[in-house]
Structures are given as structure tokens and as C-alpha cells.
């Protein structure tokens, strides 16, 4: 049995809808007769076409948030919508910064549990069942919502492939924001990167603590550039301040599913593996033959990054 109605919390930056939103919309179409979007960070007109083309028939949008962070205003607006009598069976969010903040506030407002980090969702009879990987993705836990809805679940990026539905632009409905909250954004800083985005690149070259020193990371950037890919990193070197957090791959960082993932000087801790295990091809360079990264690598080179990487770069640049 399918559900009647699912709401998908949409995210967008500068008018561009986040891939995670389109991924969730695509899945939601499979599960429910009616799929609608919630947009808690602006007016819905700029994104109505793209969301409509992925299956949303309507967008409930808050309008401009006057500089507030979305947690309080978006959750209060959605809660008010539910209290006004609109009853979705399920509200889906991405496991993202904004998704977590809004879903958490909403779960309190509606007094509903929230289940995060899911990589799959299904309807089994009347019940909504979500799947969450644990222990570094070695086990999959399936959890059923037992109470009455609307249920709240968060989906990890890259869990589903986005596909268009051929739908026309979604209807935009502006919803009231009862509480804007007091947390205000004063300034935004964007770390300039060139080349493809980490979570969209076909090739990702990541470095870890095995590089030995911050200045050795340059070769990762160079390799990524020569493969038209994006550079990535383990948390160890993000915490050490060698590269910005936006480079981090893993449980607390980005989930990547490139065609090729190259891990250099990365041990392969479970929290790193959950972020890159979905890559089609994995190449690892590590001097320790016992490093766990080799258990997921299609090609493993047991060797010194300071030898293998410069030779590799030279060979690639010489082509």
C-alpha cells in the first residue's frame, strides 16, 4: 500500500536546488500519491520549475527569512501548517546542516520522533520503514515508525538517483512564519574552489594523515586537477587544519559516489568508509598492507605516497 501524501523539505542556494532534494523527491514519488515540497528559506518561484519536474505538485514556501537561520522559522511554519489541518503521512529531509536543524525543531513542535542518516525508505503495509547503516555501514538497521504520523525521517545524500517526472511547475503557496527566532546570519564566507564540486565530481582524489605534513597536500590538488576531479580529505587532516572542512569525506563530511575514488595515506576508518564506499572504483595507496582501506579497494598499492604520487602525477601530466 502506498502513502497518500509526502512532504519533502527542499534546499536551494542562489536559486539552484540541492541534489539531495531532487533525490528525495524522486524516491517520494514511488511511495506516495501526492508529493509536495516545503521550502523554508525564501520564496518558491525560482525553484518551482525544477521541483515540479521532479514530481512536487506544490511548494509551501516561507518567503524571505530576514536573515534568520532556518531552524526556528521553517519548523514553526511547517508545524503551523500541520496544525491548520494539513496532514502528510511523512515528512522527509536531507541529512544536511539545514535539514537536521529544521527536522529537530519540528520533531519537538509536533512531538514526533525523528530518524536520521537513512539510506533507504519503504512502505510495508501501513508502516513506514527506514534503513540506517551502522558500524561503518557493515550492518543495516531497519526501523519502523509505530505511532501516528506525520513521521519525520532524514535521508543521507546520494541514497537515490534523481530522475525527472515530466511534471509541470509546482504551484507555490506562501505559508505563515509564526516565529523568526533570534539567530541571525551577519555574513557569509564562501571558500573559493575551482574545478568540480566534491560531491559531484567523477573523480575524487583524497589525502590523509599519511601525507605527513600540510604542504604535502598540494600533490593531491595537482592530481585532482590533472584528472579533472575534486580533492578530498580524511577528517584527521581537516581537524589538523591542513584543509578546510568542506574537503572532508565521511560520516561527518560529504558522501561521494564518483566513478573513481583515490585514497592516499588514508587508513580507511569506518567513518571515512561510509562516505566513499559507494564509489564505482576505489584505488588506495597506503604503506601498511593491513590498512582497512584495502578491504574496499579495487586496486591497492602498498607503498609510500611520497614515491607513488609524484610518479603518478608525472605520468599523468606527461600525457
Amino acid at each position: 500500500m502506498a502513502l497518500n501524501r509526502i512532504w519533502v523539505y527542499a534546499e536551494a542556494a542562489d536559486g539552484k536546488v540541492a541534489p539531495i532534494t531532487l533525490e528525495i523527491l524522486t524516491k517520494a514519488r514511488e511511495l506516495a500519491g501526492t508529493v509536495e515540497a516545503l521550502y523554508g528559506d525564501g520564496d518558491g518561484d525560482t525553484i518551482a520549475e525544477v521541483l515540479g519536474a521532479h514530481g512536487a505538485t506544490r511548494i509551501y514556501a516561507t518567503g524571505d527569512l530576514q536573515g534568520s537561520t532556518p531552524g526556528v522559522p521553517a519548523a514553526s511554519a511547517i508545524a503551523a501548517l500541520v496544525e491548520s489541518g494539513e496532514r502528510p503521512d511523512l515528512i522527509l529531509f536531507g541529512t544536511t546542516y539545514e535539514g537536521r536543524d529544521v527536522a529537530a525543531r519540528l520533531s519537538v513542535a509536533l512531538d514526533q520522533p525523528v530518524i536520521t542518516n537513512n539510506t533507504d525508505i519503504a512502505v510495508d503495509g501501513d508502516a513506514v520503514v527506514v534503513t540506517e547503516p551502522v558500524f561503518g555501514g557493515t550492518k543495516l538497521v531497519r526501523t519502523k515508525f509505530t505511532g501516528s504520523g506525520p513521521h519525520i525521517a532524514l535521508i543521507r545524500p546520494k541514497s537515490f538517483a534523481a530522475e525527472t517526472s515530466g511534471g509541470g511547475p509546482a504551484e507555490v503557496v506562501t505559508i505563515e512564519v509564526p516565529d523568526y527566532g533570534t539567530a541571525k546570519v551577519k555574513n557569509r564566507h564562501v571558500e573559493e574552489t575551482t574545478g568540480p564540486k566534491l560531491d559531484e565530481a567523477a573523480v575524487v582524489v583524497s589525502g590523509g594523515r599519511g601525507l605527513g605534513a600540510a604542504e604535502k597536500y598540494q600533490i593531491i590538488e595537482d592530481l585532482a586537477r590533472s584528472l579533472k576531479g575534486a580533492p578530498g580529505a580524511s577528517r584527521a587532516i581537516v581537524d589538523a587544519g591542513w584543509v578546510p572542512y568542506s574537503y572532508q569525506v565521511g560520516q561527518t563530511g560529504k558522501v561521494v559516489k564518483p566513478n573513481v575514488y583515490i585514497a592516499a595515506g588514508i587508513s580507511g576508518a569506518t567513518q571515512h568508509l561510509v562516505g566513499m564506499k559507494g564509489a564505482k572504483n576505489i584505488i588506495a595507496v597506503n604503506k601498511d598492507p593491513e590498512a582497512p582501506i584495502f578491504s574496499v579497494a579495487d586496486l591497492g598499492i602498498v607503498g609510500d605516497v611520497h614515491k607513488v604520487l609524484p610518479q603518478l602525477l608525472e605520468a599523468l601530466q606527461g600525457r
Partner: peptide, 17 residues
């Protein structure tokens, strides 16, 4: 909420090292 099942995730085959 109630856990209904815990399964092993499909393992990724290790390749050539």
C-alpha cells in the same frame, strides 16, 4: 519507533593489492 531487522550490508569485494 521499533527496530524490525538488522542485516549485514552487502560487502564490497576487495580487489588486487
Amino acid at each position: 519507533q521499533e527496530i524490525v531487522a538488522v542485516d549485514d550490508a552487502p560487502a564490497r569485494e576487495a580487489g588486487e593489492v
